[in-house]
Amino acid sequence: MAERSADEKKALRAALAVGLATAAYGISFGALATVSGLDIWQTCFLSLVMFTGGSQFALIGVLASGGLAAGGAAVTSAALLGTRNVFYSIRMAPIIGPGFFRRAAAAQLTIDESVAVASAQTSLPAQRYGFWVTGIVIYLGWNLTTLIGALIGDLLGDVSAYGLDAAAAAAFLGLLWPRLKERQTQAVAVGAAVVATLLTPWLMPGLPVIVAAVVAIVIGGFNLFARKGTTA
């Protein structure tokens, strides 16, 4: 193996730190998925194929509250949360370079964390290296811990007695928390939460979450609540 540059070593350290921290989320996901009504295979399928934490949590969250009747809303919520990966893949395409198989593998590993680690590096080799190492570490860790969590959730049985329904909300909050730095994002979060709550008695379970996405479109489209100089 060729000697790694200092840049690449830095990328490797970042990748391992982020990778290990994220892999631990998998336990929560696996446990919550099985108590939401998925079996162990379905839970593992999501981590293997969908492999994007926010969408996975969204899917099981909507299914937990609305059951199979909310299937359409569950798929839509997962898809809407997955749209940010479109922008990640655009950013990563020049870093990954050409080649069908390389790009296909990169697409599957294009998630918040791999893109964040790659973007934090300064040289192209380190960016490329950071992307792959982070993506692979998380892919392996996430799937392994999903399986462990699913086995635990399967053993637990009744959800509410253990407070796992509250754990689901706390898990979403953990995904949202790092995004709340900008005032505009805070406004969107508060607005969407209010809209979803107010609509809950009136719409089928799952739909209030999707309608609340309109808050992001309105505030983003008109660029409301933006601080001066941070319009993009």
Binding site: G54, F57, A58, G61, V62, S77, L80, L81, A169, F172, L173, L175, L176, R179, L180, T185, V188, A189, V190, G191, A192, A193, V194, V195, A196, T197, P208, V209, A212, A213, V215, A216
Partner: peptide, 9 residues
Amino acid sequence: AALLAALIA
């Protein structure tokens, strides 16, 4: 952010 906040609510 909107979807996560709505899901939390």
